[in-house]
Design a protein around this nucleic acid. Structure first.
Length: 888
RNA sequence: GGGCGAUUGGCGCAGCGGGAGCGCAAAUGCCUUACAAGCAUUAGGUCGCAGGUUCGAAUCCUGCAUCGCCCACCA
């Protein structure tokens, strides 16, 4: 099946030159604007892809959405600019570079910090720009002349400035806390960077001997999922609500192996019904235990080193890994008769979101952002409606996240990143944060050292919208910030709602005193075709680069947007891309048709004269209004559906067909009118399609003999719904429905009887109103051409010709003469079927209309509509029945 | 544990209070001078289940089931 679909078209060969032309024409830099929005800026900052990243489906969708928004805004006359850049991605990059060096037999520790950072920059120079090239391939109209990077000198200044401001404003502090430690990356990571994975495990019930027996008991039993941490236990807790356990409170147990005497105490954290009711407390290796330790003033004993191996001082256990220690501890308890029993117990374990190593809650000194004062303004920005989420329900998720926010651990024990701008004097104890490097102590003159750690990558990401627009600069770039800030749209994935979106709002409110963006588009997560998240191990991933090869950038963009509905997931459907690739082919061919028929063409205003003209212009006017509405609401699947349906099913299927006879006719004036109309509709459609399918629309536009406002479509004007509103024409729309009904009826009859389209037929149409008869007669030529009809009779009292097949429509009957070929049995069967269906519907409406409740309470116009419908159905039934009677 | 989303013809989805739609797939016939990546025609659904609100429910409410996501996390 796939082979059948394979087609041979070199999309890149068509796309690349257009991209080059736009780029060289300066269209990607801030455009001057025109028209009523001339003085308004429309700015978008790209969610900076990681320099380790290859373009994946998430980017493809994200960038398509942004480009569609920015391209439409550009055509609407806004001063547009899409700010581009990449993220240094601390852990991700360091891991990659580590791996690469390891392959060359080099260790990071050997070469030292400076050399390692050099290696990171090297790596970036080689691989870190790939993704920008891929974004170009998609046709994205970013400002490539001003690309940013989160480790640019400017950006570093911005990060340091924020750190210093927050530090001096008591929003940043240092503390010894339990943090999530990745023993593989040997760094702390933030709570929300940890991923939970459910795992089958065990609950070990261990006996801890009491120092003094109580009521004849000489031990208690603690239950734990992590027996190895017992080496660091400094207490045992029971629930205050557990009456049986109160007698133990105040007693002491002698911790096995380490022979430490530790107290039993009571704490509300303990759930009496879980496990044994006794909780071993390891303040240095569990956040909850840490909290209990604080409450009860317990010592905090760290038993692991930074790679999660047991530290010195624990005899045979020292040097063991976590897993080895677990086995050894359990074995020791078993050997000494202290392992009471083991039960199965599933639990979730925290893993590193980068390397998926199990995280260790680990006690260390870290830097924190105090969030209490920051989160209020960020919440208010959304509550007040200054920032709008699309779909709207995400605002609640955002607010919930803020409400539950705890202080943010921002220090990372990495080398690649923004080094914390804290300076310490070991001589006199002076310390301070500083934007500029400090070498000598301002107090005692001794040399100072800078903090070794770097900042969480999200700490720098939160400045992205304003740091890329000249926050630390003076003059022109600062005025750019004045002019174009806040930005209009942020399009991003839902999983970084808190990590990134909320933090940008907090930082922007603090630094800029305003919101960073007006609209947040949360697009659905692209799942594999099996409905599961795309992953290498599942093998359900899809590569956008391959998709662009197969369907073109336009095909991928349109096909992706077709799938963007309000749902939170998107089950990727490649057939949609095939669909949209076929659509772009349709566009290409329709344009070819128009251009092949432009002999004698002179540009000019459209001449909307025939009912077909009035109809297509009316439909076009409607389309522009609907596309605007959908675009403004960021309902992308609606935008694509509307464009697709208009272009294919109305413009191509009917209007182009209608126009063929006029184009080949002898009336030169009429031909010119038709040409102008075709060109106008095509031109308008291309403009509407351009934000989503930039390449093919531009390519065609270049060949189209129209004078745009700009040589390139990218900067031409977006169609205005108001100026097209004059073409709205209900009557013409109704007329064309009748015309299409007649043509379809004849075609259906042909198909039913296997009559070749080449054989001309005689047709009689019976209508109800004289005005309808006149309308249809007026379109005789059109109808005859479309249905290959040699003679057409239309009338209110037309007689059914002998030997004809009948098709019933709303308000009309179409008789197609078959001269001897009518299969009466088949006709009867078909009509009987129609009768049954009509009777069913009539019954339904009859019931409704005889319902007193309905008549009393329903809206009058609804009742009226249903009455008309009922009458129409009854009429149709009567006609079907009389046709059946005739057959007998 | 809390929250959110999905459940509509074989598949993927739209519709979100007034007679069930689209695309793909299927069937039949067409190489009709824009397009076979196409054209024409046809068939296919008691809108997850059970209650409720309403004159009227795919659409609103409640409960249940299945699938999925996010957040929190009990040793």
């Amino acid at each position: 099946m796939a082979d059948k679909k394979k087609i041979d078209f070199d999309f890149a060969a068509h796309e690349a030159p257009l991209f080059k032309a736009w780029n060289e024409g300066g269209y990607f830099q801030r455009t001057p604007g025109f028209g009523k929005h001339q003085n308004d800026c429309y700015t978008v900052v790209i969610p900076p892809p990681n320099i380790t990243g290859m373009l994946h489906m998430g980017h493809a969708l994200d960038d398509t959405i942004q480009d569609a928004c920015i391209r439409r805004a550009r055509m609407q006359g806004y001063q547009t600019r899409w700010v581009l850049g990449t993220d240094h991605a601390g852990i991700a990059t360091q891991t990659k570079v580590d791996k690469k060096l390891a392959e060359e037999g080099i260790s990071r520790l050997e070469i030292g910090r400076e050399k390692f950072i050099e290696a990171c920059y090297d790596w970036r120079a080689h691989y870190g720009t790939t993704i920008v090239e891929q974004i170009k391939g998609m046709g994205c109209s970013c400002d490539y002349s001003d690309e940013h990077f989160t480790l640019d000198p400017d950006y570093i200044d911005a990060v340091r400035r924020l750190f210093v401001e927050w530090y001096h404003d008591d929003l940043i502090y240092r503390g010894k806390r339990i943090v999530n430690w990745c023993p593989h990356c040997t760094t702390a990571i933030a709570d929300d960077e940890a991923e939970y994975v459910d795992e089958p495990g065990h609950l070990w019930h261990l006996r801890y001997p009491l120092v003094e027996p109580i009521d004849g008991l000489d031990y208690i039993i603690v239950a734990t999922t992590r027996p190895e941490t017992m080496l660091g236990d400094t207490g045992v807790a029971v629930s205050p609500k557990d009456p049986d356990k109160q007698k133990f409170v105040g007693a002491k147990v002698k911790l096995p192996i380490v022979d430490r005497e530790i107290p039993i105490f009571s704490d509300y954290y303990v759930d009496a019904d879980f496990g044994s009711g006794f909780v071993k407390v390891t303040p240095a290796h569990d956040p909850n235990d840490w909290a209990m330790g604080e409450r009860h003033d317990l010592p905090k004993i760290n038993i692991f080193d930074e790679t999660a191996h047991v530290v010195e001082g624990y005899g045979e256990f020292s040097g063991m890994s976590r897993d080895e220690a677990r086995e050894a501890v359990v074995a020791w308890f078993e050997e000494h008769g202290l392992l009471d029993h083991v039960e199965d117990h599933d639990h979730s374990v925290m893993t590193c979101y980068r390397c998926h190593t199990k995280l260790e809650p680990w006690l260390s000194e870290q830097w924190f952002v105090s969030v209490d004062r920051l989160k209020g303004p960020a919440a208010k920005a959304v509550e007040s409606g200054e920032i709008t989420f699309h779909p709207a329900r995400w605002s609640q998720v955002y607010l919930d996240w803020l409400e539950n926010l705890k202080d943010w651990c921002i220090s990372r024990q990495l080398w690649w990143g923004h080094r914390i701008p804290m300076f310490y004097c070991d001589e006199c104890g002076w310390e301070d944060a500083s934007v500029e490097d400090i070498h000598t102590c301002p107090k005692c003159g001794a040399s100072v050292r800078q903090d070794e750690d770097v900042l969480d990558t999200w700490f720098s990401s939160q400045l992205w919208p304003f740091a890329t627009m000249g926050w630390t600069r003076e003059g022109t770039q600062a005025s750019e910030l004045q002019k174009a800030y806040p930005t209009q749209v942020l399009a991003t994935a839902r999983d970084i709602m808190g990590l990134w979106v909320a933090r940008m709002v907090m930082a922007s409110e603090y630094c800029m005193g305003t919101i960073p963006f007006e609209n947040v588009i949360i697009y659905p997560t692209v799942m594999g075709s099996d409905g599961k998240p795309m992953s290498k191990s599942r093998g359900n991933g899809v590569d956008p680069l391959k998709l662009m090869e197969d369907y073109g950038a336009d095909g991928m963009r349109f096909g992706l947007l077709m799938q963007v509905t309000g749902a939170q997931d998107l089950k990727f459907n490649e057939s949609k891309l095939e669909n949209s690739r076929n659509f772009s082919n349709k566009i290409r061919n329709a344009a070819r048709f128009v251009m092949m028929n432009l002999e004698g063409f002179e540009p000019g205003e459209p001449e909307v004269s025939t009912p077909a003209d009035r109809w297509i212009f009316s439909r076009l006017a409607r389309l522009v209004a609907r596309v605007d509405e959908s675009f403004d609401a960021y309902e992308f699947s609606d935008v694509t559906r509307e464009l697709y349906a208009f272009f294919w099913n109305e413009f191509c299927d009917w209007y182009i067909e209608f126009s063929k006879s006029r184009l080949s006719g002898s009336d030169a004036a009429d031909r010119l009118a038709c040409q102008r109309n075709l060109v106008f509709v095509l031109d308008t459609a291309l403009r509407l399609l351009h934000p989503i399918m930039p390449f093919i629309t531009e390519e065609i536009f270049q060949d189209l003999p129209v004078e745009g406002e700009d040589p390139y479509l990218i900067a031409c004007a977006w169609p205005e719904a108001e100026s097209l509103a004059k073409y709205r024409d209900e009557q013409a729309e109704r007329a064309m429905i009748m015309v299409c009904d007649v043509v379809s009826a004849v075609r259906a009859t042909r198909s039913r009887y296997g009559i070749s389209p080449k054989q001309a037929l005689s047709v009689t149409v019976k209508v109800e109103a004289a005005s309808d008869a006149a309308l249809l007669s007026e379109q005789e030529q059109l109808i005859c051409g479309m249905g290959n009809i040699e003679s057409l009779q239309v009338g209110c009292d037309a007689e059914k010709p002998a030997e004809s097949s009948v098709t019933l429509g709303t308000g009309l009957e179409v008789y197609t003469v078959l001269s001897g070929h009518v299969d009466f049995e088949a006709e009867r069967a078909r009509l009987e079927k129609q009768r049954a269906s009509l009777q069913k519907d009539i019954e339904k409406f009859g019931r409704k209309l005889s319902n007193p409740g309905f008549l009393a309470k329903a809206a009058p116009e609804v009742i009226e509509k249903d009455r008309a419908k009922h009458a129409d159905l009854s009429d149709q039934l009567k006609r079907v029945e009389s046709q059946i009677a005739e057959l007998n």
